[in-house]
Design a protein around this nucleic acid. Sequence first.
DNA 1: CAGTAAATTCCGTATATTAGAATATGTTGG
DNA 2: CCAACATATTCTAATATACGGAATTTACTG
Lengths: 254, 254
Amino acid sequence: MNNTLQNGFMLLEFMAESANECSVKELAEHFKLPNSHICRLLKTLAETGYVQQIPGSRKYRISLKILCLSNARLLKITLRQKARLYLQKLAVKLGNPVYLTAPFNGRSITIDTFFPENTAGDAGLAIGAVHLPNCHACGKVCAAYLPEAELDGFLAGMDWTARTVHTITSPESFKQELAKIRQERVATIVSENQLGLGAVASPIFNAAGELAGAVGAVLPGERYWTDELWEKFKTETRNTAESISFAIGCPLPE
Amino acid sequence: MNNTLQNGFMLLEFMAESANECSVKELAEHFKLPNSHICRLLKTLAETGYVQQIPGSRKYRISLKILCLSNARLLKITLRQKARLYLQKLAVKLGNPVYLTAPFNGRSITIDTFFPENTAGDAGLAIGAVHLPNCHACGKVCAAYLPEAELDGFLAGMDWTARTVHTITSPESFKQELAKIRQERVATIVSENQLGLGAVASPIFNAAGELAGAVGAVLPGERYWTDELWEKFKTETRNTAESISFAIGCPLPE
DNA sequence: CAGTAAATTCCGTATATTAGAATATGTTGG
DNA sequence: CCAACATATTCTAATATACGGAATTTACTG
């Protein structure tokens, strides 16, 4: 059974995902709750300021206050503060989008992005975007350093339908690749999620030697791909990740 | 008296602002509630995933899940989608940080930022940052288009202590400036908040002619300031804001 | 290993939440 | 412009849930 807090977040999440403003009826039908109940929940949420009623209409929408909360949280991530300059340098050097992610419930979540001038910002890389292990290079990195048991549970619930001819479709081959990632300290995505989309990522470790995050870099279009380019991206990204690991207290390997 | 939902957000907000992870005792003392109560609230919040208990320690912290909620909301802002390219162009043209804000409870909140390569990202401009009317150019713009009554209430509660010799310290002179902003469609901040810090902002209007947001641009250091530079920033920013207004359906003035 | 401090669970009580009914508000079609 | 409908909001009584204090567990300190 749900309590009030959970109901509140349930509504907020639904409203955040829903493109338009929501009516009481719509929410009531979706959650199978009486409108009187929804109405009161919305009223309380409106009092907190996280929801507001559209002036003129009687519908509700999630307000922008949630951005404040998110921003406040973001500013407290020390990894992000310490990594900023390194990532900025990497973005300039590679001339392509670069991003910083943190492990979150076995997946990877973007906590910073850097888009050089001529590149377009990608919604899939936005701060707060979550990456699945078989869709993003950083997602692979986070999976690679998951405890065995947790990983298995995770892979069991994963969607293995092929998106392209390059998609990894079995847990076995996936685990094999994760081992290689741990060895090389670099993960790659080569047209696995979307044809022509390539990216690399490298792990960041904290003082205790645990995974603290990952640096990701998106490659230019497929027509520019060469072995040298891939090597350059791998090397630079790994170097950046190592510098950040060192900056947050992790001694360099060896 | 507070209800559960409000208590939950109260905790979340406190934890987002607090740099470190929080203990039950700390929260209980701060909010003057019994620890048993705090303990149970945290447990429920942990079930929703917005709070997590530090492994090893028994303290709690706000998780990164709030970033997802914020990101989902952000992606739904049509103004942001339509304004992106214009702002990117402006940032390149001016070679300085450029940002997009939306009006929020009489203040201005950042919903997008663009930092050209050699400029440093400023936390005060981050997405989710809220600007007061006398601290930021965009804040002034949002104040300028507030209904008279709302504005007065707002100015009454404002902090008028001078931060620099240039700070506006009376509601009368402030309202005078707001009138000028409405006339010129450009607001400026000239060392009012911090010496050597200059910025311009221009209003964006929706199809109904209401304020939909503002485009802001930060000037380079004071030593580069010339009348021409200020004029360039004002003109380019206003032109960008007008283009965006037109793009979202507002007919051009005259 | 004992003693302390904090966190968590337990439990009876009281209040806030709940669902349905009644009312108010707004919208559509004649 | 009014009537009929649909939707939102308020009201109310019942009940489940949140609440605070006490008891228990857990972790830390000397």
